[in-house]
Write a protein that binds this DNA or RNA. Structure first.
Lengths: 201, 201
DNA sequence: CCATCCATATTGACACTGTCAAGATCAAGG
DNA sequence: CCTTGATCTTGACAGTGTCAATATGGATGG
């Protein structure tokens, strides 16, 4: 298998740059992110990325788009193993959300952080982000009794659940919940789960 | 009143730099933040900030510290006008939280965003952030029946409420809830309030 | 009053960054 | 074979953070 095509028009620079960018972002943090460092890591000239992504924002937009796709996949995967009960499925999505945040914090920061506002984003990014949102809405509408609830409450439900999981993910990422509080007798995973559970009440 | 002391050892450079930094952050966004631009705005040399803050991280740490103090003040103010009912007081704090987020989004991003991890932060920052957290815990423990709840549930309550409000604030800041969803018949403020209310259930 | 000292601010330099224009290199098709 | 267009490199430019060396001026002590 030709793992690395030395065609010297590299062959797959775009994806290589995306992968390298994610590594750099995860290792050095968003503050120290450098386009030239990404190019260096791939072994290509400092200005090669421009041809594929235009500028820094272009690269990060593309990376965020890929992030949203994997994000959705993570939620769907956890939902799938959760079985048939709509409540358990919603909780599964929530745990997928949180687990994604822990496995790729820099990526999620990029996706939801400042810059990259939902409007004024590329169509692909909007589409990928919209699909994630639709996933949440579907999971909420599948709950028993959702049909009979007034529209205003239903939307408040959606955003309250999103807020809770999103906020928890952010607190975890920013290191504000490195361990379950003393006195709970729980490990971190169980404590997190006991919080996420509340979106299904 | 000597609004501007032209003492030419400027007199109050530290605070002037903090104020300018906040403006730059709010106007140009965190990505484009530049230490030299801050110095320029105050009208001092590019390297003057170093003497007061060491480096960029030092300035931002100091700004985040000030942010946490104002953040706590905002919550306390809203709590004060909420009256005596512990539930209403908790909701007031929550609304103070999101209002602060809307009035100074860049600042809150700075306070909770990546970089500036709670450990490895300056003692003053830790103290200011800790005071905000204590405020939340107090508001939760003041709720009726809190005493009799098991410790694990009480902590889960605390973090679930924090998560919800924190997540909602972040969604608002990142432009993901610019207006109440259609069909709710609510304006944005009322919709936000209907979500924040849920922390007192 | 004057000299000294030290926090405060400036200047200049260095390596690094993002972006742009111009050139080189390669793959494929007429 | 040779032209064409996409891909990548080279070189330049302005701007950045940080450091060392220098200037400045307000306070303190004689």
């Amino acid at each position: 298998m030709p793992t690395k095509k030395e065609t010297y028009h590299h062959g797959d620079l775009r994806n290589a740059l995306l992968a390298a960018a994610e590594s750099v972002l995860a290792e050095t943090g968003p503050e120290a992110f450098s386009l030239r460092a990404v190019a260096r890591r791939v072994g290509v000239s400092h200005s090669a990325p421009a041809h594929h992504f235009g500028d820094t924002a272009g690269l990060l937009d593309a990376l965020a788009t890929e992030g949203f796709r994997r994000f959705l996949a993570a939620m769907e995967a956890e939902q799938a193993v959760a079985g048939d009960d709509p409540k358990e499925r919603l909780i599964g999505s929530g745990m997928g959300y949180v687990r994604f945040a822990e496995s790729a914090p820099a990526l999620l920061q990029l996706m939801f952080g400042p810059g990259r506002k939902p409007d004024e984003a590329s169509p692909e990014l909007q589409q990928a982000a919209g699909a994630s949102f639709a996933h949440l809405v579907d999971a909420c509408r599948a709950l028993p009794g959702a049909e009979s609830r007034p529209e205003a409450e239903l939307w408040a439900d959606v955003y309250a659940r999103w807020s809770l999981v999103h906020g928890l993910a952010n607190l975890l990422m920013s290191g504000r919940l490195k361990t379950a509080p003393e006195g709970t007798g729980l490990d971190r995973e169980a404590f997190v789960h006991s919080i996420v559970r509340r979106i299904a009440t």
